[in-house]
């Protein structure tokens, strides 16, 4: 008899579909920021739960599509294939840009290179250059530490440079693992969100400023003014996608992000405020 009671305890609330949790998924770039926002959000609005998961940007959008997320964090804009899938399901989606991110290319700090050209980056990441000798004069194999193919960061770098990644690029689980690998690997190169470099410990690595052609000045992703002006080559808006139908449910959280407190958290986490 006691047993049935246990079942009831579990099953009854499951049936009553009062769903007060906002599920936010996707984008390793944004997950940490989202966690910090959710922490502070709880202080002002304890009645609404927020659960957050990371993974790639693809995960967020896929989860939104699959109905397992209310908000999809994404560091890339939604692509036409995904839009088609939403249309097929008859779900209308809206988006909201809540911060700007810049991708930083990092190497170990003893590698003799101070800035990098986008053509050279394309050569390195596509596997055309296998050795550092032509760039730095040091005869060392280039080790690439990248993200999994489903990550928005991976996708963004690939599209921006117009290349396919060499299959020998190591696919790391997240930005943090990349930084850790670069610290240990003196001939490695990797890419991470600028927020990770400014916020996390950055001893042992350096960020390469990027330029497009020789006459141009190389721009660092840590230069807030250049980011605000939209001048850095690898910069991008951070999106939050949601189904138009569930706007009322997630509105309290979006409002909190736009508030002064929210914007301050975004800045402290190493991201840049939205260009207005």
């Amino acid at each position: 008899m006691k047993y049935y009671f246990c079942y009831l305890i579990v099953l009854l609330p499951a049936c009553s579909q009062e769903n007060k949790t906002i599920k936010i998924k996707g984008s390793d770039t944004e997950v940490n920021l989202a966690v910090q926002l959710a922490e502070s959000f709880h202080e002002v609005n304890a009645g609404v739960f927020v659960s957050i998961s990371g993974g790639g940007s693809g995960l967020g959008i896929a989860s939104l599509l699959n109905g397992t997320a209310d908000v999809a964090n994404s560091s890339r804009s939604i692509n036409s294939g995904e839009i088609n899938l939403f249309e097929k399901k008859g779900a209308k989606i809206d988006s909201f840009i809540f911060a700007q991110d810049a991708i930083a290319f990092v190497v170990a700090d003893d590698l003799p290179i101070d800035s990098v050209n986008t053509d050279d980056l394309a050569g390195i990441l596509s596997g055309r250059y296998k050795n550092w000798s032509s760039l730095t004069g040091k005869n060392m194999i280039i080790n690439i530490y990248g993200r999994q193919s489903n990550s928005g960061t991976h996708d963004f770098v690939k599209k921006k440079l117009g290349i396919e990644f060499t299959p020998y690029a190591k696919q790391m689980n997240g930005n943090a693992q990349i930084l850790e690998a670069i610290k240990a690997d003196h001939s490695g190169i990797g890419y991470v969100g600028a927020g990770y470099v400014t916020h996390g410990s950055s001893t042992g690595i350096k960020v390469l400023p990027v330029y497009q052609d020789k006459n141009e000045k190389a721009i660092s992703p840590l230069d807030a003014n250049m980011i605000a002006a939209g001048k850095y080559f690898f910069q991008r808006p951070l999106y939050q996608y949601y189904k138009a139908a569930s706007f009322d449910k997630i509105k309290p959280f979006l409002d909190f992000e736009k508030s002064d407190t929210g914007q301050k958290i975004i800045q402290l986490a190493g991201y840049y405020p939205v260009i207005k």
């Binding site: 896929a62 696919q171 790391m172 689980n173």
Partner: peptide, 26 residues
């Protein structure tokens, strides 16, 4: 987790189980 044909034990590899775990959520 590099999904390429490994040449030896010192190469990064990605097993079937790991592939499912990485990609299914996404």
């Amino acid at each position: 987790n590099a999904a390429v044909l490994p040449k030896g034990f010192l190469d990064a590899v990605r097993t079937i189980t790991a592939t499912i775990a990485i990609e299914m959520g996404e």
